[in-house]
Amino acid sequence: MRHTRSRRHRILLASGAMLAVAGLLTACTPGETDPAAGGSGGASSDAGTPASPEAAKPGEKVTIGFSGPAADHGWMGAINSAALKSAKGFSDVELVVAEGTNDASLQISQIETFINNKVDAIVMLPTDGAALTDVAIKAMQAGIPVVNVDREFSSNFAARTTVLGDNYGMGVSAGTYICNELGGKKDAVVAEIAGIDSLPLTQDRSRGFKEALGDCGLTVSNRVAADFTVQGGEAATSQLLASAPKLDAVWNHDDDQGIGVLAAITAANRNEFFMVGGAGSKNAMESIKAGDSVLRATVIYPSTQAADGIAMARLIALGLPATDFVTQGVPNRVVLDAPVVTKENVDTYIGAAFDS
């Protein structure tokens, strides 16, 4: 019973977070976010259409500076494009976009330019949260609200609002799905193909996965780490398959590296197990829908975090509330949901998926 209660507790926590955020997103995100209506728990194929009458009311023109990542990864490219589409949905927003970069020094100079130009708000996905903390604090001290996306700063004083995907929740969702699919098979061999092990997000995903599996009496029998690239996914998976002659289930943290993961599985002619992906790419969902590989499900990590950040930055700059909340203002921290996409519900989510 202890395991059952613990597992139910985590699922309820995740569901509660999803419900809390859903009210906010209805009020201040462009586009419909209800999965039943075609969204994806934070991802929306209609990004760019304001949803709330009050949030949609044009106000005084505001200038928002956006600094995002280099689009060297399908998910990263989707972050940038969704942010631009979000801004276009508001007639009172002028978006100033810095060149996408993975260079912390360049990004610091971009934010300093935004500060010097006295923009009304800044939305930033930092290439390194700790490295960008000081310049974000500088912006806040200059009276410019900062919306922090995906990778957290190392100080609470660096951002007015933080928008995050749920990395721990991804692991919980993947582990819970695998537990349910294996139906109490206590001797099941479960493997994990992680991303970059030094990143806190990878550590959080692995921790959630381990704990969810533990609640049904399973452990991670084999684990390798890749680097979020196709090549890294293929190499790590080849290593995994060589050391594990039999598997029952595999969780791969990232659908972009999953292209290489599936290539290695095909090359090894292995199909005795099923796999769960991560992030929610379009090609992964198409494979799930077609049933043409071992990939049976994927866990969404929303690529619309910056789009939500633009919408919230607008509300903050204009002094508008998140209207579906009783409290005034915009919450200072939003964690988006990590739903599992399967063949049964893939049509609900695929319209908002990103291309790997």
Score class of each variant (00 low, 15 high):
Met285Ser: 09
Pro69Lys: 11
Glu234His: 04
Pro35His: 01
Ser356Glu: 14
Gly143Ser: 04
Ala353Cys: 05
Asp34Gly: 09
Val220Thr: 14
Phe228Met: 01
Gly280Asn: 09
Ala20Trp: 05
Lys85Glu: 15
Ser109Met: 06
Val330Ser: 01
Pro302Trp: 11
Asn222Thr: 04
Ala322Arg: 00
Ala139Ser: 01
Gln257Gly: 09
Gly143Trp: 05
Lys57Met: 12
Ala87Trp: 05
Val147Pro: 01
Thr26Tyr: 11
Lys289Ser: 15
Glu272Gln: 06
Ala338His: 01
Arg10Gly: 03
Asp187Cys: 08
Gln110Trp: 06
Val261Asn: 09
Leu336Cys: 08
Asp215His: 03
Gly280Tyr: 05
Ser44Leu: 12
Tyr168Arg: 11
Gly233Leu: 03
Trp75Pro: 11
Ile310Pro: 13
Asp134Met: 06
Ala104Ile: 02
Glu60Met: 06
Thr266Ala: 14
Gly65Ala: 10
Arg2Ser: 13
Tyr349Ser: 07
Met76Trp: 12
Thr113Cys: 02
Asp128Gln: 07
Ala191Val: 06
Ile122His: 07
Val299Ala: 05
Cys216Glu: 00
Phe90Met: 08
Gly38Tyr: 03
Asp72Thr: 04
Asp227Pro: 12
Gly184Lys: 08
Val230Ser: 04
Gly175Asn: 01
Val341His: 08
Lys210Tyr: 01
Val250His: 00
Ala142Arg: 07
Asp150Asn: 15
Ile178Asn: 05
His3Ala: 14
Ile108Ser: 12
Gly39Phe: 08
Glu234Trp: 00
Thr237Cys: 05
Met170Thr: 04
Gln305Ile: 15
Ser281Asp: 14
Ser109Cys: 01
Ser238Leu: 00
Asp347Phe: 06
Asn148Arg: 11
His73Tyr: 09
Arg314Trp: 09
Phe274Lys: 10
Ile122Pro: 09
Gly214Ser: 14
Leu315Cys: 13
Leu182Ile: 13
Asp197Lys: 07
Gly42Arg: 06
Leu247Ala: 02
Asp134Cys: 02
Glu99Gly: 10
Gly41Leu: 03
Asn102Pro: 05
Pro53Met: 07
Asn180Gly: 06
Lys282Gln: 12
Gly129Ala: 11
Val330Asp: 00
Asn117Phe: 11
Gly184Met: 05
Ala70Asn: 00
Glu234Met: 13
Glu94Gln: 14
Lys57Gln: 13
Asn102Glu: 13
Val189Arg: 10
Thr219Met: 04
Arg333Gly: 02
Asn116Ser: 15
Asp256Tyr: 03
Ala174Gly: 13
Ser221Phe: 06
Ala212Thr: 11
Leu199Gln: 12
Val340Phe: 06
